[in-house]
Simulated assay, not measured.
Amino acid sequence: MTNLDNIDTFLDKSLKEYQEQYESLQTQSENLINRTDNILDFIDHTPQILNDLDNQFEKKTGLSFFEVEILFAVVGFQLLRQYLLTKFPLRLDDQISAKTTDGYVKTSSNRRHRYYEPSLEEIITNPVPFDANLGANGALKGGGKLGHRVTAIGHDPLLGLIFGTANIATSTLTTNLFDSYHIKTINSRDAFTEKANTGLVLGYTIKKLLGPVDDKQKVAISFIKEIIHLRSDLHTHNSLPLPLISVIDGEFASRLASYGLDFSNVVTISKQAILANLINSLAAMYHYSFYDGEIDEELYRVKTKKIIMYSNIIASVTNLAAVGITKNVNLLDVGGIGVAIYETITSVKYRKKVKREFIIGRYDEMFEDL
């Protein structure tokens, strides 16, 4: 083969390679142009695509007829709770409330006084010493509307469990300033006599608690008597102050009570919120028990939150309407309304998060398939 033939062969081969490369580049160019066109078309149709994805999300998270039935069942349970279990109780006077309190026994003062060491019989048969006011000489001043229920710390719903129990076990009274007084019987009534030592009030109580069975029994009976007394005062007209505030500012605690912030209302509102949450939790668990994996779990949870949110809103609106029609504020479901507001805020926030992830995720998948 001559050199000329070699050159021709080389040229033919090179030309063929260049032609193949050209065709490949042309194909890639056409594909790129087509993809660019597709991308531009996709971008042009983005509003419609997003709207379609939004509709898909709404369809997937819409409630079925069965789920609507669950929703109204939850509404029914919330309404039953509102009117049978957690409405605000009628306020009674002290005597009537005491008579209707389980465990309450009418007593009269007959203290055979031994400093810090009343007998078990005296503890049982005498009134709680922190109800005494005869001879107080200003020791209980500064209680405002709530009077001695602010200044006698045995009435504090939290500190009373300690100091009230100790006062009963030692025949003493401790004020919100932590001053203590011996309480004795004068003309069949409990009365202040002389100052006591608050350290000894607690010390003797601890000593009894750690002592023989008879002394332990005195503290146990004192504690039970404290609980019964707090319960008897709870739903009276003046009720009890909020915990701990009395020792910070007695007049402020009384002022709060005059605005409705007393322990009775706090207990009722807390009960409303706790039971409303319990119903919501049971409803959520019941709904989740039907999850079959057909849709993403987060989308199913959006449906659950819808059931809880809508049922709480309906129950709360119904409650407000009932209060407006009857003019009976004792029916107001403050705790339940608070739970409904919280559920609405958290549900909307969660729904927005899941919806954003759903739409962006599907949009990215569609873009990658172009």
Rank of each mutant, 00 (worst) to 15 (best):
V339C: 04
I325T: 07
K327A: 14
T326H: 08
M309R: 15
I307A: 03
T326L: 14
G336E: 02
I313T: 02
I325C: 08
A340I: 10
I313M: 10
I308K: 02
I307V: 13
G336L: 03
G324H: 08
L320G: 09
T318Q: 11
I325G: 08
I314N: 04
G324S: 14
G324A: 10
A315T: 05
V323R: 01
N312K: 11
V317Y: 08
I313Q: 03
G335L: 02
Y310C: 11
L331N: 06
K306P: 10
L320Q: 10
I313E: 01
I337P: 00
T326F: 13
V329A: 13
G335Q: 04
N328K: 13
G338C: 05
I308Y: 01
T326S: 13
A321Q: 11
A321G: 06
S311T: 05
T318D: 09
K305M: 11
I307M: 08
G335P: 01
A340N: 07
L331V: 09
N312W: 05
K327N: 10
D333V: 09
A322P: 06
V329G: 11
N319G: 01
A340H: 04
N328Q: 14
G324V: 08
L332Y: 09
I307K: 01
L332F: 15
I308D: 00
G324N: 13
L332R: 06
D333M: 03
N330L: 13
I325L: 09
V339L: 08
A340Q: 04
N330P: 12
M309F: 15
G338L: 05
I313K: 00
K303R: 15
A340L: 07
V339T: 15
V323H: 03
L320C: 12
N319W: 00
L320D: 03
S316E: 01
K306S: 12
S311E: 00
V323W: 03
I307H: 04
G336P: 01
I314R: 08
I325W: 06
G336C: 07
S311C: 03
K303L: 09
Y310N: 12
K303E: 13
G335H: 01
L320N: 06
V329F: 15
K305F: 14
V334A: 07
T304M: 10
D333P: 06
N319T: 00
N319R: 00
S311I: 00
N328D: 15
T326I: 09
K327Y: 14
D333T: 10
S311G: 03
T304S: 12
M309N: 14
V317F: 08
I325A: 06
I337T: 07
K327F: 13
A340V: 12
V334Q: 07
K303D: 09
S311Y: 00
S311R: 00
V323S: 04
V339S: 04
I325M: 07
I325Q: 05
T326P: 12
N312M: 06
N330Q: 09
G338Y: 05
N319H: 00
V339D: 02
D333R: 03
L331Q: 08
V339H: 04
G335F: 01
Y310I: 13
T326Q: 10
I308F: 06
T326A: 11
K305S: 15
I308N: 00
V329N: 10
D333W: 12
N328F: 15
S316N: 05
S316Y: 02
K303C: 09
V329R: 15
I313R: 04
S311Q: 03
T326M: 13
